[in-house]
């Protein structure tokens, strides 16, 4: 090596002193950019709304707030990164029931249910159970009668044990029937209805139904009616139980309370902006804010409920 060793050392020291200064001047959170890890690919409604919210948070907190997508492994990769990040409030993350609940219940994760602390659940994506328009049933009850009369019905969803599929199964169980088969689709679209691969799909975006006349919705997997499809009954209306494909903002478990409060306040303020509410309305999603405690409670409830369904489906 021709390069004198002290050169490297000097360089390292320079970098170090830069950081040394900032660390010494540590006064108030936040003073560095904040990153929000999204374990899913960019571009779905939850990702877009988080990016919009991040802009408002950034204005409010005075440091850049950036959404980073770390995808893969059913969301576990990103979720693990959030759980194992340094609990200083500079790494936050988005979670959905998959990585937050069902993967934990199935024992696929290294983190537990309480290793991620919810800032709050804030977004329900507009999932719909959709069927071909020419099917002879128009509600879950009629579908149940149809199946119980000896007809076969194939459910198309992401994976057999993915959350939308579990919810569709819980709905069926409560109606009193079971799907003949479940097939995994990726992406889930109304196309599979047309080719006859599936008879009922867990459609992730209600807007697809407005485009495709050959399909219609039976039930929305939400608590509130989807604004763009006001005629379709919700899971909560039909079965009297909460069910939604939510997204929440989380921090690592051991974030100091004062830092957590700063994040939480900025986030709630961002959610109140008109732009975000309007965006929710136009996509058919539902924007709200369920506080930390409420979110924790919902997660634990769901863990129990999904565990029952997972055990049933795998045995």
């Amino acid at each position: 090596m021709k390069l004198p060793k002290f050169g490297v050392k000097a360089a390292v020291m320079t970098v170090a002193t830069c950081f040394g200064f900032s660390a010494a001047a540590m006064a108030e959170f936040p003073e560095r950019p904040i990153q929000i890890i999204n374990p899913w690919a960019p571009g779905d409604s939850a990702d877009i709304v988080m990016r919009k919210a991040a802009e408002y948070m950034s204005e409010d907190l005075g440091v850049p707030v950036k959404v980073i997508n770390r995808t893969g492994g059913g969301g576990i990769i990103g979720a693990t990164a959030i759980a194992t990040a340094r609990p200083d409030g500079y790494t936050l993350g988005l979670l959905t029931p998959g990585p937050a609940v069902t993967q934990v219940v199935m024992g696929n994760t290294t983190y537990g249910l309480d290793d991620l602390k919810p800032v709050g659940i804030f977004w329900d994506s507009p999932f719909v159970l959709a069927v071909r328009s020419d099917e002879p049933f128009s509600s879950m009850k009629e579908l149940g009668d149809y199946v119980n009369a000896g007809n076969t019905v194939t459910l198309g969803s992401y994976a057999q044990l993915a959350v939308p599929s579990l919810l569709a199964n819980i709905a069926a169980e409560k109606t009193g029937f079971g799907y003949t088969r479940i097939i995994g689709l990726d992406p889930v679209s109304t196309l599979s209805l047309g080719t006859g691969d599936a008879d009922i799909v867990t459609l992730p975006d209600a807007r697809a139904l407005l485009q495709d006349e050959s399909a219609r919705g039976l039930l929305t997997l939400t608590n509130e009616r989807i604004s763009t499809l006001p005629d379709i009954p919700t899971f909560k209306e039909v079965y009297g139980e909460e069910a939604s494909l939510w997204t929440g903002l989380f921090t690592p478990r051991d974030v100091p309370q004062e830092v957590f409060d700063v994040v939480s306040k900025a986030f709630q303020k961002a959610l109140e902006q008109d732009e975000i509410q309007e965006y929710a309305k136009s996509t058919g999603a539902y924007a709200y804010f369920l506080d930390s405690e409420g979110s924790s409670k919902r997660i634990h409830n769901e863990a129990e409920r999904f565990k029952g369904m997972i055990d049933k489906l795998t045995n």
Partner: peptide, 10 residues
């Protein structure tokens, strides 16, 4: 390799 199969198991 990875999560896969009908049930999405590792």
């Amino acid at each position: 390799v990875g999560l896969g199969g009908a049930t999405g198991m590792p």
